[in-house]
Amino acid sequence: MGADGDERETAQPGVGLTTGEVARRLGVAPTTVRTWDRRYGLGPDLRSDGRHRRWTVVDVARLERMCALTATGLPPAEAARIALGEGPLDTGPAGQAGPAPSRRPARGRTRSGTGLRLGDVRQECKGIARAALRLDGDALDELLTTVIEQYGLVTAWTEVIMPTLQAVGRKWESSGERYVEVEHLLSWHVSGALRRSTRPAAAARPGAATLLACVPGEYHTLPLEVLAAALAERGLPVHMFGGALPVESLIAAVRRTGPAVVGLWAQSRTTASTPLAQHVANLEWGVRGARRKPFVLTLGPGWAGRTVAGVPHPADLAAAVAAVQSQVRA
């Protein structure tokens, strides 16, 4: 048993799932599952060796309903009554108890109960989406850390985190600006998970580091943070300058740090500047007689369709990582 009280053993075939396995499947913290068991009676009847919880398919389905109901904004106690089949009670105009139709979950939800159009994605996407809709920061931290540790940054971003962020973005865009807080919370915790997962890279020396920056007017830093973390994961030193770096500061940073690679991120076509990319590619650094130029990459959807001579535009995160590795290690 770990420090948080979670059962770490793997469930035996035909016996059921452990609390930790159920929590990962649902996208909640193990402590949340145990609280629902203790406080609302949502736990399983089965105990292996009389002590460890073992969750059957029926038990998990009841918890999935609990997750779906709390994601709609229902208080946990009321959601638990519905999940247990007792049904919510409300006082009507005549003072009689009856069902509260306004609080019933909307139809047409995905099987995951998130209300997000996730499509054919990994199971972890549904768990992260549920946690984000509940504004459950603790569960998000645990789920994101687990996904990154299990798959590595590139796969975790491409197949789990990015599809979930896109689904949340579609949700608020189609809901009249609702759920903006969900996207902000999810982005914040993704950024935190990236920082926690990033190990210190080797000391940066001229000609061996990568400089990453958003172009002027661009503040969407999260994809660039992912690239920085993925490079650090591979032991490649990075100078990360974040959002909207002014042109003069970008030029000064290139000349002062002497990077092998410069990555310029633009989310929007209005911020992507072909002359700027070309200018950076022509910058020289180093001592007289041994001048060098950085290898420039244009990153992000803002550069799509814009050709800069001698400046590649990687199609995705994996391609960007490969391009940097090739240049630095050459």
Rank of each mutant, 00 (worst) to 15 (best):
G73R: 11
A97L: 15
C67N: 01
R81F: 08
A71R: 01
A61L: 10
A77K: 02
L74R: 10
P75G: 10
V58Q: 15
A83P: 02
E78K: 13
G95R: 05
V58M: 09
L74Q: 10
L89Q: 12
D90K: 09
G73Y: 06
P75C: 10
D59Q: 04
A83S: 04
P75N: 09
S102E: 15
P99H: 11
A83V: 02
A100G: 08
R81T: 09
P99Q: 07
G87F: 06
P75W: 15
G92E: 03
R62H: 03
A83Q: 00
G92Q: 06
T70V: 12
L74K: 09
A80M: 13
A97Q: 15
A83D: 03
G98K: 12
E86P: 06
P93R: 11
R81M: 06
G95Q: 01
D90S: 13
L74F: 06
A68C: 07
A83G: 02
Q96N: 05
P76S: 05
V58H: 15
L84A: 06
P99T: 07
D90V: 09
E86F: 13
E64S: 00
D59A: 00
A94C: 07
L84M: 07
M66F: 15
V58Y: 14
E78N: 14
G85A: 06
P88R: 12
A61M: 09
V57S: 01
E64W: 00
G87P: 04
D90G: 15
R81N: 05
I82H: 13
P75H: 08
E86S: 12
L84Q: 09
E64A: 00
V60C: 10
L69T: 00
E86K: 14
C67T: 06
V57A: 01
T72C: 05
S102G: 07
V60Y: 07
A100T: 10
G73S: 10
R65D: 03
T70Q: 00
P76F: 05
A79N: 05
P76V: 08
A79D: 06
R62F: 13
C67A: 03
